[in-house]
Simulated scan of single mutants.
Amino acid sequence: MKLRVALGSDHGGFHLKMAIKDYLNRQGIANHDFGTYNAESVDYPDYAHKVAAAVASGEYDRGILCCGTGIGVCIAANKVPGIRAALCHDTFSARAAREHNDANILTLGERVIGPGLALEIVDTWLKAEFSGGRHARRVQKISAIEDQYRGREDRVVVPCCHDGE
C-alpha cells in the first residue's frame, strides 16, 4: 500500500509545512496540501478540520498539521471522530504515538522546533507502525468514548469516578 498524506497549516506553521511537503515529495510519498498557501493570517481550525476530515474519511492514510505551537491544530483535529492527532516535538514521542496510540495525524509547531528536527520526527512517525496487542484495546476504548458522545451535543455524559462506591 502506498501511503497518502494530507498536509495543512495555518500561517504560523506555513514554512514548516512547506519544508515537510518538499521532504515528502523527495521521498516519493503521495501528499496533498489542504492549505494555507501563504503566510497571511488565517484561522487554524479551518485547516485542521480539512485535513482531519480527509483522514477520517479514508481518503488519506495519515495527516500532518503545523501551526505556531502544534497545539491548536491538535485540539481542532481531535474533534473529528476517528482522529487520533498527536503533538510531537521529539522522535521518541513520534514513534510511541504510532506504535502505542495508532496516531493518524501528527502535529508540529514551527515556533517550537526547527525544520531539521521536524523532518526527523516526520520520518520516524511515517515509518513506525501500530503495535496492536494491549495497545489495540486502549485505542478501542478511545473509539468507544467518541461513540458515547457522537450525536449527543445536547447531553454530556460524565463517567463515574468512584469505583465500588
Rank of each mutant, 00 (worst) to 15 (best):
K2P: 15
K2G: 09
L3D: 11
V5M: 09
A6V: 06
A6D: 13
L7C: 01
L7D: 00
G8E: 10
D10Q: 07
D10A: 07
G12D: 08
G13H: 09
G13M: 12
G13Q: 11
F14D: 00
F14N: 00
H15F: 15
L16G: 06
L16E: 06
K17F: 08
M18E: 15
A19K: 02
I20K: 00
K21H: 00
Y23T: 01
L24C: 04
L24K: 00
L24F: 01
N25M: 13
R26I: 03
R26F: 04
G28P: 05
I29R: 00
N31P: 06
D33A: 01
D33G: 00
T36K: 02
T36Q: 04
Y37V: 02
N38E: 06
N38G: 10
S41E: 12
S41H: 11
V42K: 12
D43R: 09
Y47R: 07
A48R: 00
A48W: 04
H49N: 13
H49M: 14
K50R: 15
K50Q: 09
K50S: 05
A52Q: 08
V55K: 07
V55Q: 08
V55W: 11
A56N: 08
A56H: 05
G58M: 09
E59S: 14
E59N: 13
Y60A: 08
Y60C: 10
Y60K: 06
D61M: 04
I64H: 03
C67V: 05
T69P: 10
G70A: 09
G70R: 02
I71T: 08
C74E: 11
I75G: 01
A76P: 10
A76Q: 09
A77K: 00
A77D: 11
A77W: 03
N78H: 07
N78C: 10
N78R: 02
K79L: 13
K79S: 12
G82D: 06
I83R: 05
R84Q: 04
A85K: 05
A85M: 10
A85C: 10
A86L: 01
C88N: 09
C88S: 13
H89R: 10
D90R: 00
T91G: 11
S93C: 14
H100L: 01
D102C: 05
A103P: 12
L106G: 03
T107H: 02
L108V: 04
L108W: 01
L108C: 04
L108I: 03
E110C: 02
V112N: 04
I113M: 11
I113A: 09
I113Q: 11
P115H: 13
P115A: 15
G116S: 07
A118I: 03
L119S: 00
L119D: 01
L119H: 00
I121Q: 11
I121W: 02
V122S: 07
T124C: 10
W125D: 07
L126N: 04
E129Q: 07
E129C: 03
F130N: 05
G132P: 06
G132L: 06
G133K: 01
R134H: 12
H135A: 11
H135D: 14
A136D: 15
R138C: 01
Q140E: 12
K141L: 14
I142D: 03
S143H: 14
E146W: 15
Q148N: 12
R150Q: 13
R150F: 06
R152D: 12
D154M: 06
D154S: 11
R155P: 08
R155K: 15
V156L: 15
V158S: 08
P159K: 03
C160P: 12
H162T: 07
D163Y: 07
G164T: 05
E165D: 14
